[in-house]
Every structure is written in C-alpha cells, then in structure tokens.
C-alpha cells in the first residue's frame, strides 16, 4: 500500500500468521512441532547424561520424538498442499510460525527439569495419541497409533524418574520440586481449545484437549504423591505457543537447529 491507500489493519491481525489457514493443517503442525522441539531438547543431552544407561535412554526418546515429528510434518505438508516437505517445514520456518506449546521449548535445564518436563508432557501425550487413534483422518490415526506405543514407554521411564528424584535424596527432591514449580504454569496450555481444536473436534479429527485434563491430572497427582512432591498451586497460566507467540528460547534454539540447512538453501544432504 502507499500513503494514498493506507488503511488501518484489523484487531485480529495482532494474532500471528497462519491462523487463517486450514485448521487441520494447523492442528497437525501443533502436534508435530511439540515433538520436534521436545526431541531436539532431549537430543542436547547426548554425551552429557548422568550415566551411560541414561544417555542411551534419552537418546532413544529423542529419536522417537523426532521420528514422530517427521511423520507428522510430512502429513501436515500434504494437507497444506503447497509442496512443503517435512524438512522445509522443520528448517525454513521462523519461530513465529512454529506451533508447539511453550512447555517443550524451555531450555533443558538440569536433569530434574528435563525429566519432570518430560513426565508432564508424556502423561498428556498418551491421552492425545489414544484420542487420535480413532481420527477421521486415517493417516493421522496411523501415525498416532505407532507413536502411542513409544509414548507409553516414555511415560513409564519419566514417571519412574520423577519418583526416584522426588523420593531420592534431599537434594534431588529439592530440584524436582523446583522444576515442578517452575513448569506448572506451562501445563494449562496443553489443554486449551481454540477455534482450531473446535473445528478438529467437530470433524472427528482429534479429541477435545479440555477433556484430557482430568485424566492427565489423575496420573500427575498419583506420581507426584508417590514422589513425595507437592503439586504447585494453579496460578498464572503461560500460553501463546499454539499461535506462534513463543518465548525467546525458541528463536535461539532454532538458530542452532536451522543454521546449517539455511546456510545452503536448496542443497541436498
């Protein structure tokens, strides 16, 4: 536009890009981005874990999550229909175009932070993936069914660590509690339903996230109590990831993750 044709924008423009696009595309992207970002965070532990067996375990989970991300991204690209491959979506979107929840993009922190975050996500993930098994989108359902087997295993592992850290030494207990306190405000975002989810539920593509919360809380309360930890109070809820309003952490993470691919656009690897 020029100064002659200048018009004010709309209130809805304050939301970031992509909201107007196909809700099914956005929905699958949200699922994919959660895994891509979380898998990447886990992969940062490679060669730095507390003991060899755990290095292997975390590596396994990173692998599972990035593998799932790849499958979901490929499907998202197919839904979008603009020829964007899983790599194009992973490496050539800016932070504002990512649709992961904030919980997964936070830095890995110490081991307690990583495992408590993992547990909170895993407990949600098995419910989500279970809900997707009956999706009217058969491809989505298929990817979710395979991922669910992996998610059950992840939950077993992360729940066990929450118990071991919570009911281990006083130092590990303190760190686990601190992690839980710091992460709690990021959990409500997992269960928020906006227009995208409403459309998806209507079309039978996926479960209503708000309905997952009660069952999630039962699992979380049980494990937290077994771990002799205390559930933090529900206070402020942080959100925005689902519409591209991320923390500063994501941009920095992507600048590492995407740097090589972006340095050689169009190259094959």
């Amino acid at each position: 536009m020029t100064s002659d044709t200048w018009v004010p924008g709309k209130r809805s423009d304050t939301a970031t890009s992509g909201i107007a696009s196909d809700p099914q595309f956005t929905y699958v992207l949200r699922i994919a981005d959660d895994r891509l970002v979380l898998g990447h965070r886990l992969s940062e532990w490679c060669a730095h874990a507390p003991i060899l067996e755990e290095d292997i375990a975390l590596g396994n989970f990173a692998l599972d999550l990035v593998g799932q991300a790849s499958a979901f991204l490929k499907h998202a690209g197919a839904i979008e229909g603009k020829g964007r491959s899983e790599d194009t979506l992973a490496y050539f979107r800016d932070a504002v175009e990512f649709r992961n929840c904030l919980l997964v993009e936070l830095p890995r922190g110490d081991f307690a932070m990583t495992l408590v975050r993992q547990f909170l996500f895993d407990a949600f993930d098995i419910l989500l993936l279970e809900g997707l098994a009956a999706s009217s989108d058969k491809t989505l359902g298929g990817i979710a069914a395979k991922a669910e087997k992996e998610a059950r295993y992840h939950l077993r592992h992360s729940a066990e660590w929450v118990r071991m850290l919570g009911d281990g030494t006083s130092e590990s207990h303190e760190r686990a509690q601190r992690a839980l306190n710091d992460l709690w405000m990021y959990t409500p975002e997992l269960f928020v339903a906006d227009d995208v989810e409403r459309a998806v539920v209507e079309r039978g593509i996926g479960p209503d996230p708000a309905e997952l919360r009660d069952r999630w809380l039962v699992t979380v309360q049980r494990v937290v109590s077994e771990a002799t930890l205390t559930l933090p109070p529900d206070e402020h809820a942080a959100s925005g990831g689902r519409i591209g309003r991320h923390t500063e952490h994501l941009g920095r993470m992507l600048s590492d993750m995407q740097s090589l691919a972006r340095a050689h656009p169009g190259a094959t690897w």
Partner: peptide, 11 residues
C-alpha cells in the same frame, strides 16, 4: 528391577 528392565530394553 524395574529400572534394570527399562535400561535393558534401551540397550
């Protein structure tokens, strides 16, 4: 034991 089973599976 539970931990050993999980580690065994991973390795």
């Amino acid at each position: 034991a539970e931990h050993a089973l999980q580690n065994a599976r991973d390795v």
